[in-house]
Amino acid sequence: MRLSFALVLICGPAFAACPAPPDIAGELTQLFEKSRSASNFQQGQSLSNKMWEVWLRAPDDAAQEVLNRGLRKRDAFDFVGALADFDRLVTYCPAYAEGYNQRAYILYLREDYENALVDLDIALELQPLHVAAQSGRALTLMKLGRIPEARAQLLVAVENNPWLSEAALLAKGAPLEPVGEDI
């Protein structure tokens, strides 16, 4: 780790300021359009992965290092360590939606749904086209028993990316199945 990273990670934003995240709306809109016209699962998943590449692109090297470290800890089931890194990331880069989205995921895994929802709302305020935050918000609302809101949120996410695995929750007989359909 270079010294500049160390100063930012140890001292925090007092010594450095996180730059504003770039505008990624155009890039995501193109990926959504391609996703909607994908002809098979493999194409759809490839486009979903490209969306993740966009969301996981941090505003600077210091933020990227904290994000990557938190993701490694999350993947190793070190949720306490991951949460600490994502806390650090949102403190350093409060305008970067992915920090909130990742922290929300850890909170969701810890069954702290109310706080996960707060972070997902912030993530979506910062980046309304964050499909993973949209689907995460739907899952969180479902866990909170707010089924109509969960269904509406998931419909938005699936409209943006029809290849989401969570789309299965909208099928007939599934927890978020559409209501009021004629038989």
Rank of each mutant, 00 (worst) to 15 (best):
Q45K: 09
I24P: 08
A38D: 01
Q42R: 14
F41N: 11
L28W: 13
A38E: 00
E53V: 03
V54G: 02
Q42T: 13
E27D: 12
P19F: 02
I24R: 14
A20D: 15
R57S: 04
E53M: 09
F32Y: 01
R57L: 10
P22W: 09
N49Q: 15
V54D: 01
W52M: 14
G44E: 02
D23I: 10
N40E: 11
N40H: 05
G44N: 04
E33Q: 08
L28T: 07
E27R: 14
A20S: 15
A38C: 00
G44F: 08
L28D: 06
E33D: 12
P21Y: 00
E53S: 15
G44P: 04
S37H: 07
S37F: 07
Q43E: 14
K50Q: 15
Q45F: 09
T29M: 13
V54T: 03
N40D: 12
I24W: 03
E53C: 02
L28R: 06
S35V: 05
E33H: 05
W55F: 09
Q42M: 10
P22E: 15
E53P: 02
G44I: 01
F32D: 09
T29E: 15
F41R: 12
D60Y: 09
I24M: 08
E33C: 03
T29K: 15
D60K: 00
Q43W: 07
F32T: 00
G44S: 10
T29Y: 10
N49A: 14
R57K: 12
D23H: 06
D23L: 07
A25G: 14
D60R: 03
L56S: 12
A58H: 06
S39W: 01
A20G: 13
A25H: 15
P22Q: 12
N49K: 09
K50W: 02
N40F: 03
P59S: 05
Q30M: 10
R57F: 05
F32V: 08
S37W: 00
R57E: 04
Q30P: 07
E27Y: 06
T29P: 09
A38H: 03
N40A: 02
Q45H: 07
E27V: 11
M51W: 04
L28E: 12
S35Y: 05
P19S: 01
P21K: 03
A20P: 13
